[in-house]
Amino acid sequence: MRYGMAIDTKKCVGCSDCVVACQTENNVPHGYSRDWIAETVEGTYPDLAMEIRSERCNHCDNTPCVRTCPTGASHVTEGGIVKVTHEECIGCGACIESCPYDARYFHPDGYVDKCTFCDHRVKNGQDPACVSVCPTHCMYFGDLDDPNSEVSKKVATRKTKVLAPEAGTKPQIFYLI
């Protein structure tokens, strides 16, 4: 079992519905976000290429955030989901400093918070909130270890990239390009 995501950059329109769905589903405090939209424009006018991505924690295979946590609050749960136990977090910020994607933030209640792949929904067989609301169906969530899952098929048949592979974190969110 290895949860992961495939996100189709050709289908994403950057509507931010995933961001709002996440904030509502997970009671993310006002002014914060666990996922976000990044737009890149590359090239020189008039030869411009645009890419729109929905980004979040990459639930990496090699997790610097878990490694640097001094209390063990940051941990990897079943299926490779990276989570923070709020009661064990002292808010030292080591995991925030160690994340090349800056995917974590200090919750105003004094602990570090991040994307959980909506594991409370996944447990019940549902997709994460961001995936379930996407109006263009550009996100696929599932088990990367299962070759028959939709996400595995997308990763196998399409050209993919991960973010900052040079950071050596082995991200498990694949962008279809």
Binding site: S16, G31, F106
Partner: peptide
């Protein structure tokens, strides 16, 4: 010259626009 412009919708306090978690 090829250039890349990145815009992000994220604006988490102490994280964006640049990290300043440690003071």
């Amino acid at each position: 010259m090829r250039e890349e412009l990145i815009t992000s919708g994220r604006m988490n306090p102490l994280i964006d626009p640049y990290l300043n978690a440690w003071h």
